[in-house]
Write a protein that binds this DNA or RNA. Structure first.
Lengths: 184, 184
DNA sequence: TGTAATATTCAGACAGGTCTGTTCACTTAT
DNA sequence: ATAAGTGAACAGACCTGTCTGAATATTACA
């Protein structure tokens, strides 16, 4: 399982710095220092490599969010506030390069392309995650608040990526808190 | 000037339906029914064709917004509300395929690529436009509100594109109005 | 421990296709 | 006669995915 992780790590780094389409298989194997046949043994096609990358990134994100949230003992409203702060923090880490499934969806815009479809699934997952937290926090319309938070976070991720240092993540956090207070 | 417009219109349609990178020069000229030399006479490189497309789209958007806004005689707060409704309306038109400069920035992620740089300029332009309206409307912190609206609109554009029919534009409009009321 | 069997990885060539951009001689307008 | 457009070929580079034979690890058994 070591080789697989090494390939995935190299691919992740290239996908996020140069883009997915711009990172050819030859570049990935050169950067990882492996043979092409090895890559194709672990990932029978580039599409499978891409979806594995997307799945991995989502899993890590939710893992990190969950473990950070449970460590705080707090009222339900405070959990929502903590969530906003964690998302801000996450966007501001130097390793952040935008929401992976967003980038993938833009790079593969055709609706029947497997990458686009998988990206849509991951987007729905995120919204469901946020709506669930809004529900347990007692929001009047959890689905509405969940989607508004999704929009804010995705927008902030985009703006911060395109204009680094513009403070978009912090402004989005403040906007999110305003919306939360208005809907509890 | 007719040929130039025809090329630009064909390129626009292909860029927005299939993506920019996925729309090769050969596809564009085939769709437009012209010779390759003709395209390269009007646009010496594909990059120039792309930037022309981005400029054109931005110009048309601001033209439409401005003319729609001045036709309404209203208080300053009402102008901000109208703005939100217009943006929602614009996102919901069937011709909408996401913010062009966003898509371009994602497709060309390297910071020194001319397309990425031009996209950043257009993103700043949008935020300045919204901040200016927030200022004339008397917002307490026009720059903050302008950026929050930018984040909401860009996020809504993304979500609506990835999950059509999810009502993201409408929810973003409501969120925007909440934020506006909170900052006036 | 020693050795044989098995699995993994290697470097590189290859096929068949795509891409941007250039150039050519020929034809059509104005 | 000046300018613009056509069709087609071409260069040089890139792409994904397949395949080969040799080198290297890993495992199993004695």
């Amino acid at each position: 399982m070591k080789m697989r992780d090494k390939i995935l790590a190299t691919a992740t780094s290239l996908f996020e710095s140069r883009g997915i389409q711009a990172s050819g298989v030859d570049t990935i194997i050169a950067e990882a220092g492996i043979a092409k046949a090895t890559l194709y043994k672990h990932f029978p096609s580039k599409n499978l490599l891409i979806t594995s990358y997307l799945r991995e990134k989502s899993d890590r994100f939710y893992e990190w969010l969950n473990s950070s949230l449970v460590s705080k003992k707090a009222t339900s409203l405070e959990i929502l506030i903590s969530l906003c702060e964690l998302v801000e923090q996450w966007i501001m880490t130097p390793e952040f390069h935008g929401l992976p499934f967003h980038i993938a969806a833009v790079e593969f815009p055709e609706p029947d392309h497997p990458i686009n479809q998988y990206s849509a699934v991951l987007a729905v997952e995120l919204q469901g995650y946020l709506s669930k937290i809004a529900a347990t926090a007692g929001a009047k319309d959890p689905e509405a608040l969940g989607q508004q938070l999704t929009i804010l976070f995705e927008g902030a991720a985009l703006v911060e990526r395109l204009s680094p240092g513009s403070g978009a993540a912090s402004r989005a956090k403040n906007a999110a808190i305003t919306l939360i207070r208005a809907s509890i």
